[in-house]
Amino acid sequence: MKALRLVAIGWLFQMKMLSRSSFDGLLGILWPLFFATTAFFMFRTSHDSRALLYAALGSSVMGIWSSTSVAASSALQRERWYGTLEAIVGTPAHFSLVLIPITLAMSTVGIYSMAATLLWGRFLFGIGVHIVHPLLFVIAVPTTVLAIGLLGFLLSVTVVRYRTAWALGNALEYPVWLVCGFLVPLSLFPDWVRPISWALAPTWGVRAIRQAALGGAPLWPVAACIGLAALYGIAGTLLVDTVLRSARRTATLSLT
């Protein structure tokens, strides 16, 4: 209960902080739109309204991953830069409960981009978004956000020793868009790619969102999403302790 409160308050705090940097936020919305626009032009040639809706739903999730991958990979570096990392580590709170709200807030902000992409598709490309299971859609979206946020958490802990992790975060943007089938069916990839796709929660998130909108059984992908999110959370928490201990040993907490 206490942990839940800490995560909730931390999340609110981070959301407040993110809302204060509108210029970065603008880019967060514009950036996926460039890719969505390109994809819309490409799918438009097929003259299949279902294909366009498929593309619109997939590209709307791109922004959630973008805002998470770049920001999460440099989350710890940013705390170091502010000089707050030591202050946080010096508190009795478990560090993963501090870090999870940060990456969760970043994926939450991606919802703006999702809305922007769907509206963009609606008004500039006439892609009507008709949702077959509205209730399940409303469940699928936050589940995806949660799972991507926790994937970001795991990422942020994994790359903690990587000084210029923002560059890695940038570079991870396209691979996930591609491998998780945001815009192309997984069946196009060689067989060895498939396990990678399955291990990544965004794959199931985008599938759940699509099935909720286009019709299907989105509950299974929702369950897979939640299961993977829990796994990321546990793995990240286990890793945090090791990482922090090693940082206290090697004196790398305060380095910028």
Binding site: K16, R20, T84
Partner: peptide, 14 residues
């Protein structure tokens, strides 16, 4: 309670 000198160490936007 740990207090360090210098002007870093707070979330400046808030």
């Amino acid at each position: 309670g740990y207090v360090f000198g210098g002007d870093r160490g707070a979330y400046e936007r808030l």
